[in-house]
Design a binder for these strands. Structure first.
Lengths: 144, 144
DNA sequence: AGCCTTTCGTCAGAGAATCTGACGAAATTT
DNA sequence: AAATTTCGTCAGATTCTCTGACGAAAGGCT
């Protein structure tokens, strides 16, 4: 029978596969001092930078935890914080030099994995998958 | 534009939504002493029971961590351990009485969420989603 | 039989990640 | 101006996870 496995687990399996592969290959490429938790925050940083609270909400953790992880990312040179010109209380977390290199390296790995998935599923179904997930985001993304 | 967001994150968003909702509603139903980490191990337990090492591999954690979590699940009455008749070193982790009730309650919530998703996507596309994810599992499930 | 070697689970200890609660500073509202 | 809210941090505790080492049992190999 065509799998009575619940849809949640069905989503988690490929996610985990991608995450662990990106993580491994990044480590092999010299970015071996970043942890998965740090990476999950890091990957949410937008081009213009984000406030700490935004990152926390998007990553689904408290702002204290996000602050803890950003401190480490900053010490490792992946990000830096700049004052928020619009709000004296806040600072913006921005991708730094080393972070930009990591982003680039990660994008290469992600592209390769997506290509493998496309090869397995066919371009048409890969596009359907992304389309459907995008639609699902409308009712499942607390941040969208 | 149709989202250049990477497919991994696209998978994670609905997963997290489902996980957190199941978790919340389970807590509201009286299963409020279980943690997400415990639940991620618990949900892998098969009808006949599993060895600790199996659970660890499936959950992607070390056997020590799995042991730690199963100890707690056992203390809370969700599971129990029985000797493995085929191997004197091993024991089987089995779902206990209270665990079975939690499984039942979780299944109800999962079914409701899947119904919501189906209502949003349409039955046809929901089926496509599950079909495609099932296929993707062939190359992404280290356990399958 | 008797010895490796591997596998299963646990113990011990350390480290990482997360949370709750409380706080000062700045922004916003009244 | 004062009260309220929001932003980030500090402090402390808990939870989760890992590495390393170990005894017990199983399986292989002379």
């Amino acid at each position: 029978m065509p799998s009575e496995i619940n849809t949640g687990l069905l989503l988690l399996i490929p996610y985990r596969s991608m995450e662990s592969r990106v993580f491994e290959e990044l480590a092999a490429a010299g970015f071996d001092d970043i942890t998965p938790s740090q990476a999950r925050v890091f990957q949410r940083i937008a081009p213009g930078g984000n406030r700490l609270g935004d990152l926390a909400r998007q990553a689904g953790i408290t702002k204290q935890s996000a602050g803890f992880l950003v401190d480490q990312l900053e010490a490792l040179g992946y990000v830096h914080r700049v004052p928020d010109p619009d709000d004296g209380r806040a600072r913006l977390v921005r991708v730094g030099e080393r972070g930009a290199l990591a982003v680039e390296a990660a994008a290469v790995v992600v592209a390769r994995i997506e290509a493998e998935w496309t090869a397995h599923l066919g371009a048409r179904r890969m596009a359907q998958l992304r389309q459907i997930l995008g639609d699902l985001r409308e009712i499942t993304d607390p941040w969208a």
